[in-house]
Every structure is written in C-alpha cells, then in structure tokens.
C-alpha cells in the first residue's frame, strides 16, 4: 500500500529532515516502493518461529564497575560544528 504524504511528512519530522514538496513526492514514491518490496516478506509463513532480536546466543554480557577514564574536552568537542564555553551549541531545542 502506498504511503500518504502525511505519513512521509511525519517520518521526515522524526528524522529532522525538511523536505520540499518535490522531495516529499519523490520520497513518498521511493519509500512506498521499498515497503512494497519488504511486503514480500509478509508472504512467508512464520508460524512457530520465535522473533529474533539477537543472533549471537550470548546472554548477560557485563563488565565490572571500573573507571577507565574520559576523553579530554578538546577531543570531545573536536567534531562539534559549533561550541561555546566548553559545550556543544545547537539550535534551540524548543523552537516550534
């Protein structure tokens, strides 16, 4: 089933992507296409198959509570596009 424009806009906002009307139409068609392809999987009979979220078979992998140290602040901020007072600077979080 093809996606609606509203669904694509919603996903775009969740991903923090601003789309023009043309881009929205393009994404709607392309995403719908991908979903159709994935829908092929719906045809597989999975009766009695446990959902799989892990494939390693490992359980309870834990580490002791030991401090290994932190990065220097210069390293931490090395890739920050913008910074101030030793902090990352980003767009206002609650701007509508």
């Amino acid at each position: 089933m093809p996606l609606s424009d509203a669904e694509v806009s919603h996903v775009a906002r969740l991903a923090r992507l601003g789309l023009s009307d043309e881009e929205l139409a393009l994404m709607r068609d392309q995403l719908s296409h991908i979903l159709e392809y994935i829908e092929l999987l719906q045809e597989v009979d999975v009766t009695g198959v446990e959902p799989t979220a892990q494939v390693t078979g490992l359980v309870s992998v834990m580490r002791p509570d030991v401090v290994k140290g932190a990065l220097s602040r210069d390293e931490v901020l090395a890739n920050a596009p913008d910074q101030r007072d030793g902090m990352f600077r980003v767009k206002p979080v609650f701007e509508d």
Partner: peptide, 12 residues
Amino acid sequence: LHADEGGSLIDY
C-alpha cells in the same frame, strides 16, 4: 542549557 541569545548548549 538554554543560551541567552537563542540556541541551546549541551554538557554530556
């Protein structure tokens, strides 16, 4: 932290 001139600052 909300910076005074707009924008937010983050301490991780």
